[in-house]
Every structure is written in structure tokens, then in C-alpha cells.
Design a protein around this nucleic acid. Structure first.
Lengths: 243, 243
DNA sequence: GAAGAACAGATTGTCGACAATCAGGCCTCT
DNA sequence: AGAGGCCTGATTGTCGACAATCTGTTCTTC
């Protein structure tokens, strides 16, 4: 079984191989950060010129982003950045609940003692940071992602990891970046994380799944509540040439 | 909320638009059916010639198949059909259990009475077929897929549907096609399907999820048992130029 | 004046050719 | 004889150009 590494540490090899890979990464971060606004049309000649490449690799990169669910492609009409409605954001949490619950269950069976120790130290660092500066929003979110990513990896199920890391997380990060969402309830979340690790350490997969699902359901409710309190326009602002 | 149609009925438009789409479909069915063996190298010039197109659209089709998880792509080394180890097949069932369990829960809340009626009639047809000819393996499998697909659609969660339909089902069908797997326990499975529909009809999402997960777990065990009873070579046979 | 059709511009889809990279075999050297 | 490096062949990566398709505008017609 191929072990799956968390992506926390350096994921910036000095020089990725192919142009398609590089452009794909650049576009991905641009989309997640909102530099390419939601619903924004992705003009092939313009983008190719902007990144100094030809249309061929760019098209392949777009096709790959389509596979990641960050871009929608309509034949003869071009590609657009996806638009994340509030409904869709909440739906992502349903999928997360299902997948990460299963990941926690599997992790409880497979995680090595060393990995559990490392996971605890990760939570200790989070606790320290929260105590120090109240957990500045951005790093808090990244820390949360880091925790969940490690559990996903520990499931030993590459397909599951692929779905979470390759599709859900990007869209969630996109929402977080572009919404004014502050990391609500960091201390509470940390406590829930610790309970989950406890369950894993006791090899109680059933409990780990239950706790993870409850944890994500609460996060979902927090997002739903925040969305409800926003009567303003969509998540950020809608691209001029939308729809 | 965009409604999601089951794919049961005609999914063969007379003439799809772009070459990439067409080749992608052809390659997909070829891979699922094992005409392109597992681990088989996908030579771009050869494939392009074989389908009478240029390498451009073919490469984009390969990239899309990569997104579907049917093909793995190594830079400068080309694309290969994935190899489904027995372990990976079983891991797919874990993901299915999580996702379809959630789908059943959501479907219990959202499914319209008309859809429930239709679902029951679908099961009635299955029952009839099983009573008639014992449920010949192929159609039984397809019928099973049909049932699960409808519930997935009824979840009203496009991302969830996309994951199930776009990634898991293809790989499962690939395994079924190429293994000697016969539809074990058709009558038992049908009975479980009916229980699930009952739970949905009563709007008991909790129960629907539990039953669906149990159903898939049993299917997983049946597959695991069958795999264990095969001491022969891998699923089908390994491509000559493998790995 | 409004509805419909033809046109123009731009954008996407497709193709063939060139350059960069990798795999395998052969030769040379120790 | 074995190990190492070089070379050749093939395959992938990249590019620019041409053809098909769509969108928005303008002209014609009722």
C-alpha cells in the first residue's frame, strides 16, 4: 500500500517539469485566491499570452482544472471559473462529512503510533498559536486543513485522499479566501480535534467517525449561520462578464 | 437547485460535438471493457491513428480520463491504463459506503413522491427479472448500478453525484467487466434495496443511511470473499508491457 | 418600429511539424 | 567478463496556423 504524504511541508519543487503542470498550478492558486474571479471567462489566447506559453499546454491545464472541479467547460463556448453559490458550499460540507468520517474510521485502524504522536504535536502547536494570538484567521484555517489532510492520508485509501485533496479542499479554500469568513470557534474546533485523536489513539474507529462527522457538521452550521447573516451580494463580487 | 437526471435512458446522442468528447467516451468504454488492458501503455501516435484523429484532441481526452481516475499519466513517460489491485477495489467500496450513505440520507429528505414511486417500479422490474431468469449477471449488475445512481441523483448534491458517477462507478464497472464476478446474492440485494426505499419513503434519513451503508458493506464482503477464493493471477491478465 | 436573417469578428477546435526528453542497445574501458 | 558511458530510436512536449463554430451587430423586411 502506497503511503500518502501530507502536503504540509514544502510543495514547491524548484522547477516543475512540464509547462502544463506549471500553468495548472498557477491557474489553480489564481482561482483559489480570487485573482481570477468566479464565473470569469478564461480566454485561451489571452491566458496563453499572459503566461508566455502556447495554447496547447494551456488547454490541457484547463482540462485538468475541469477535472478538479475548479473550471467548467462548455464546448465551443470556452471555459469559465466555477461560481460557488452558498448552497454549493454547504453541499461540500455534506460530502466532507461522509468522506472524512470514513477517513477517521480507517485512520483509527491504520495510523501508526508515530503518526499519532506527530498529530498530537501538531495540535499542540495549534493550541499554542491560539493561546498566543487568538489564532489569526488565515493560519488557523490552514492549520485546520492540515489536520484534516493528515487524517485523510492516514486512511490509507488513495482514492479517498484524491477526492478530498484533489477536489473538495480546493473549492473550500477558494470560498475561505474570497469570503470574509473568519475562523469561527478556533478553540472549540481544537478541542474537537483532540477528541478525534483520542478516539484514533484508542483504535475506536466507530467513535472517531462519529466525532469527525459531528465536528464537520458543526463547522457546516457555523458557515451556514454566517451565510445567513450576510444579506449582501454573493461571496465576493461577481465577474463583470458573468453567466 | 439543478435537478440531476439518472443516466439510465439513452445516453447516446447521435453525434456528440467535439472530437475530444467522442474519443474520451470511446476510450472510456474500451478501458472499462478491458479492450485496453490494465496497465496498458497508451501510445499517442498509435491511438490517434487508430481513431483517425490528431494527437491534440487525443491528449486532451487522456487528460480528462486522468481526471476520472481511469488513466495515470507520468511526465515524459506517457499515459497508462490504471491497474486495479484487489486492495483498491475494496477501497472503492469504503468510499462508496461513505458517499452513498450520505446520498441516501439526503435523498430521504429531498426525494419527491413521484420519484419514490418510480424507484419502487424499478425495483419491481428487477424483482420480475430475478424471478424470471434468476437475474442474469450482467443485467443484474446494471440494474444495481441504476438503483444506486438514482439515489445519488436524488441527493440533490451535484458534487456528490459527480464523485460517484464520474469516478467510482467507472472503476467498479471496469472491475466487474473484467473479473469473473457474478452478481452474487441478487435476491438478497433486492430485498435490501427495498428496505432502503422504505426508509426513504418514511423520510427517515438516519435509517436510510444506515441501511445503505450496511448494504454496501455486505456487497464489499461478497467481493472480498470472492477475491479470497481466487488464487489465480490478477483480475484479468496483465498487459504484456506492464509497469 | 419591431422581428428576423445575414454578416463580421472573435474564439474555440483541430491539425501537422519541430524540439526536448527518455529508454534501450551497443561499444569501450578496466 | 562486467560495469559504465555513449548513441540511436522512439515518444512525449510544445508551437504556430488553419478550419469550424458561436456571439453580437447591422441590415432588411413586414
Amino acid at each position: 500500500m502506497s503511503t500518502i504524504r501530507p502536503l504540509s511541508q514544502a510543495d514547491h519543487p524548484p522547477e516543475p517539469g512540464t509547462l502544463t503542470d506549471r500553468i495548472c498550478e498557477q491557474l489553480k492558486t489564481a482561482i483559489v485566491r480570487g485573482e481570477l474571479a468566479q464565473g470569469c471567462k478564461l480566454n485561451e489566447p489571452a491566458l496563453a499570452a499572459r503566461y508566455g506559453i502556447s495554447r496547447g499546454p494551456l488547454r490541457e491545464a484547463l482540462r485538468r482544472l475541469e477535472g478538479l472541479g475548479l473550471v467548467v467547460h462548455v464546448p465551443h463556448a470556452g471555459a469559465r471559473v466555477i461560481t460557488l453559490s452558498r448552497t454549493e458550499v454547504l453541499q461540500i460540507y455534506h460530502v466532507r462529512e461522509a468522506l472524512e468520517g470514513m477517513a477517521a474510521r480507517l485512520a483509527a485502524e491504520l495510523m501508526t503510533p508515530a503518526e499519532i504522536v506527530e498529530l498530537r504535536s501538531l495540535l499542540a502547536r495549534h493550541a499554542h498559536r491560539i493561546a498566543a494570538d487568538g489564532g489569526r484567521a488565515y493560519f488557523q484555517q490552514e492549520g485546520d486543513t492540515d489536520f484534516h489532510d493528515r487524517i485523510a492520508c492516514a486512511s490509507g485509501n488513495p482514492g479517498l485522499v484524491q477526492m478530498l485533496r484533489g477536489e473538495l479542499y480546493h473549492r473550500l479554500r477558494m470560498y475561505r479566501y474570497q469570503s470574509s469568513q473568519q475562523a469561527a470557534r478556533p478553540a472549540k474546533a481544537l478541542q474537537e480535534h483532540e477528541q478525534i485523536v483520542d478516539a484514533i489513539a484508542e483504535r475506536d474507529g466507530e467513535l472517531a467517525e462519529t466525532l469527525m462527522r459531528r465536528h464537520i457538521r458543526r463547522a457546516r452550521r457555523a458557515v451556514a449561520e454566517q451565510i445567513r447573516s450576510e444579506f449582501e451580494q454573493p461571496i465576493h463580487f461577481v465577474a463583470e462578464e458573468n453567466r
